[in-house]
């Protein structure tokens, strides 16, 4: 068992432009099972090859799903068409949709969330690094694969590069990861941190969770409420943007302090009260988690190699 992905994941890639092609090659090299591409008018014809790997390319998601039983889609479609691509996957009843695209208009996401509400699909993103699960070699995203290592800690973050930063620290501290989920930096996204925490909470492969939030919105407060109510595994949290000025959008459309609830301090207070262990410095996420795992008797150093 594990969350969102597993060794039965059959990946469909939508949007085979240059970036989509580069990324899917790296996922294939990582060992991810890619079964289909969708790209109307794909210049490479009706299939895509990389090394010994090859998969058919279709014009529509519905055809691709029917022919290949894909059960997860990664979307690299540019912003003007990204919401439409998500809607296409919802209509085709793809169970898990991951949208990498940055810059999707917020009104488009209102439409997407309405369509998701009564659907059989779950969405991660947009404006996210995707999901990676080292133990099943499943990379549905844009991660640098080398820093990841299989293990028992889950990671959930709004920011992509902070997933890499946190994971690098974990791996250096001898702590592997079960699944790493970047939920995205936009004001409206699919699953939020709280939903991912719930998944980790019932995942036997996960013993503790790193939660990385940032300024803006109320998602961390919702996560804190869930931790307080139901979480039975330790959570180490870092909130980015403690030094950000109010009223300015810090890169992510969602990362803007509007009112007191959006500040890092308000989020840190909520998480601390809920029992999460706060890492004030982003450089101490790994060492904090190691301490927490050791205290819980859950630290499992990889192999027998000495420090």
């Amino acid at each position: 068992m594990s969350i969102l992905l597993n060794n039965r994941t059959r990946l469909l890639i939508q949007g085979l432009g240059n970036e989509g092609q580069n990324q899917i090659r790296r996922s294939l090299d990582y060992g991810t099972r890619v079964v289909a591409g969708v790209h109307p008018g794909f210049r490479g014809g009706d299939s895509f090859s990389h090394g010994n790997h090859s998969f058919p390319v279709f014009a529509t998601v519905a055809e691709a799903v029917e022919q290949t039983q894909a059960n997860c889609t990664i979307i690299y479609v540019p912003a003007p068409g990204a919401a439409d691509a998500i809607l296409e996957n919802i209509a085709a009843e793809v169970p898990l949709i991951v949208c990498i695209t940055e810059g999707v208009p917020v009104h488009d996401m209102i439409r997407v969330r309405t369509a998701l509400a009564d659907s059989k699909s779950r969405l991660i993103g947009p404006n996210c690094p995707g999901i990676i699960q080292p133990a099943s070699n499943c990379r549905v995203g844009i991660h640098p694969p080398d820093v990841f290592m299989a293990g028992n800690v889950g990671v959930v973050s709004r920011s992509g590069t902070l997933v890499y930063e946190a994971v690098d620290q974990l791996t250096r501290a001898g702590i592997g990861q079960s699944t790493c989920v970047g939920v995205g930096g936009d004001p409206i996204i699919g699953e939020q941190q709280q939903a991912i925490l719930r998944r980790f909470n019932s995942d036997p492969d996960t013993d503790a969770v790193v939660l990385i939030g940032e300024i803006g919105g109320l998602a961390e407060q919702a996560a804190a409420a869930y931790i307080k109510r139901s979480m039975n595994k330790p959570v180490v949290a870092f909130i980015a943007g403690a030094t950000a000025p109010p009223g300015r959008r810090m890169g992510h459309a969602g990362a803007i302090i509007e009112g007191e609830a959006g500040t890092a301090e308000a989020k840190i207070t909520a998480l601390e009260e809920a029992g999460a262990v706060i890492s004030r410095s982003p450089a101490e996420i790994g060492s904090t988690m190691r301490r927490v795992l050791e205290e819980a008797g859950k630290y499992q150093p990889p192999g027998a190699s000495a420090e």
């Binding site: 973050s157 992509g160 930096g185 980015a240 950000a244």
Partner: peptide, 17 residues
Amino acid sequence: VVNGAGLAMATMDTLKL
């Protein structure tokens, strides 16, 4: 000069710390 909004904010935070 940083890549990624989250890491850029975290870099500012680390400098301040």
